[in-house]
Design a protein around this nucleic acid. Sequence first.
DNA 1: GTCTATAACCGGATAGAC
DNA 2: GTCTATCCGGTTATAGAC
Lengths: 207, 207
Amino acid sequence: METQDTTREKILIAARDVFVERGYDGARMHEIAARADVNKAMIYYYYNSKDALFESILKDSFKRFFAYFLVLKNIADMDIEKLIAAIIHAHIDFLEQNPYLPKIIFREIHSNNPVTSKVIREFFNQGFGEIVTQFVDKIDRASGNGNIRPVDSIQTIWNVVAMNLFYFMMKPIISVFSDRLNMDEKELLTRRKQAITDLVLNGLLPR
Amino acid sequence: METQDTTREKILIAARDVFVERGYDGARMHEIAARADVNKAMIYYYYNSKDALFESILKDSFKRFFAYFLVLKNIADMDIEKLIAAIIHAHIDFLEQNPYLPKIIFREIHSNNPVTSKVIREFFNQGFGEIVTQFVDKIDRASGNGNIRPVDSIQTIWNVVAMNLFYFMMKPIISVFSDRLNMDEKELLTRRKQAITDLVLNGLLPR
DNA sequence: GTCTATAACCGGATAGAC
DNA sequence: GTCTATCCGGTTATAGAC
């Protein structure tokens, strides 16, 4: 459960926040303890080291991410147009509720941090690679049928994912100038979903 | 000059690499010294502190980035279709030659690192904000003319930037599975540019 | 399970010789 | 400009009382 008040859970949630804000190397164990409102030694009692704590968080995050993709799998027999719209909406909704996930991954991804590499590899091998393959096939078939224009399926998937992630990656920059946007996040994300869906569907459908 | 062999330059280039790989907090002054093949004390001789060194790198990077946008400014009286294609190609070419820039920024962007915030703010105030405004106007006018479909101009710009950046952000993940792509980076980026241009132009042009 | 005290180490920074 | 030696503060981690 997300909001269980056990010491163990409090540490995990606090640690996630601190790792997002400071990165692995910038995160301080005493700051995690302070935010979780527990004694610093308790972190070592439940998790053995900073490394092990970080790995727990990564695994937990990927588990949520995977769960989200399973939802999409169930609707994979929709027609391609509805499927793409559903993917965009589900992905952005997920990110709205789990904004820490892309942040924490992109912070560590360039490090060759062995823990990060390991967890990503496992994630791909334990089902995610399979799901991506299904999407690729789906696009290739629609492309072959003439339901959509002929496109490079992998590039297309990258494009959708890129646009979905963008706001969550850029948020710190965007919020500096958010006064110029004058709308709240909910409104902005609604527009975002609409703009992406609009571009992709119009870009893919035969002329 | 990029490849000048002065001690000062060697430090800057080595530091850039180390900051990309390890982030600000993970970067070690002795590692920078080792890679630059200079004595550690020399870093403090030329740059006064880790903080000042980092700021130099950020400023240098943004200067290059700004120079790139000035090139685009000169072609802003092209028709919208050609302009968008030019932006995508120029941006990706720039990123191919300066892949460290988005990495270093996205590593620190969630930190509220005061140096990063300051440099970004200056960058926007010293001309970049102006250029973005010009693009927004350009899209709004084309949209009004009926040259392109009615779209949200800011969302559209975000979409293009998102797709351009994607490969360079995801590279560490993509390279883990690059055997499945079986093509080299040059070929891949050519396809990437083509796929993005294709999607955006088909997505924007009136049906 | 919780807390205090402290060990053991490491990294940024500087002093000062050459 | 370059190098060696070293200081000082802070960080992970543990020992051990309760």
